[in-house]
Amino acid sequence: MTLPDGRAVVEAREGDGATLSIHGAAIGDRVYTGAITFFALCVPLLLLAIAWEIGVAGWPTLHKFGFGFLTSSDWDPVKGEFGAAPAIYGTIVSSIIALVLATPLAIGVSLFLSELAPRWLRQPVGFLVDLLAAIPSVVYGLWGIFVLLPVLRDPVMPFLRDTLHLDKTGLFTGPAYGPSMLAAGIILAIMVLPYIASVSREVLLAVPRSQREAALALGATRWEAIWGAVLPYARSGIVGGVILGLGRALGETMAVTMLIGNRPEIAASLFAPGYTMASLLANEFSEASSDAHLSALMAVAFVLFVITLIVNGIARWLVWQVSRNTSGRTA
C-alpha cells in the first residue's frame, strides 16, 4: 500500500470503497429480501397460529363430543353438556335474513349508481353507502337497542303478525319482545349492505360499455339491457360480493350480541330470541370458570374460524376469477 505515487494510493482506496459498497449492497439486498419475506410469511404464520392455538384449546371438547357437538342443542356449562347447535343455527339464520334483506338493496343501489345515476350523484351516494361500513359494530348495537328494537316491538312485529297474518307461516309468531333473530338479521343486513354494494358496484362498472350499447341497439329497453346484458355479465362477481357479505355476517359480534336476546334455543319463529356463535363467545367467554366450559367455547371459536375461512376463501376466489377475466378481456 506504500506506493511512492500519491495518486495510486487514492485509486486503490477508491477501488476498496467500490468493492466494499458492492459487497455492502449484496448484504443489504439479502437483509432486505429476508426482512420482507419474513413479514410476508407473518400472514400465513398468523393464520396457522390462530388455528393451532384455538384448535388445541378446543380439542378436548371436539374429541369428547365428536360430531354431536355440532348437532346437540344442550348447552349447560353447569352439567358439562355442550352442544353448539343453537348457536350454529342462529348464526346461519341471522345471516340468511341479513342476505335476503341486503342483497336486493345492494344490487339495486349499485345498479342505480352504475346505470342510472347522473355523474354528479354517483360519488356522494356511493360515499354514503360506503360510510355504513365505517360505523363500528357497537354503535350499530347501541342504535339497535334504543331505536330499532322499540320500532320493531311496536308497529313492525305486530303488523307482520296480525295485520299481514304472517303468523301462519310459523316464522312470525309469538310475543313481540323486541330482542330477536329478526332484529339481529335486520341490523346485520344494514351492516353487510356496504360490502355487497361496493363489490357489486365495482363489478358492474367493469362491464364493458359495448355490452349495454349492443343490447340497446337491438331494441331492448333500459331495464331489458340491464337484466339481459349487464347483470349476467357481472353475475359471478356479485355472487362473490354476496358471499363476502355472508362472511361478515357470520362473524359479526357486538351488534348481534346486543340485539339477538342471547337464548340458546332453536325456535322456528323469528320473533324469538336466539344465539349466534359469536354472541355466545362474547357473552360467556370472560365468565367461563371451568376448563370444560372454556374448551367448549374454544371449540365454538374454532368452528366459527373454519366456517368463515371457507366462506371467505370461496368469495375471494369468485371475485378474483371475475377481475382476472375482465382484465383479460380489456387487455
Partner: peptide
C-alpha cells in the same frame, strides 16, 4: 390470498386468539 382471508376473519376470533396467546 391468505391476507384477504385473514381480513375476513371475525374479530372476536382474533380476540380469543390474543387471549389464549
Amino acid at each position: 390470498f391468505l391476507s384477504d382471508v385473514l381480513n375476513g376473519l371475525p374479530s372476536i376470533v382474533m380476540g380469543i386468539f390474543a387471549w389464549q396467546f
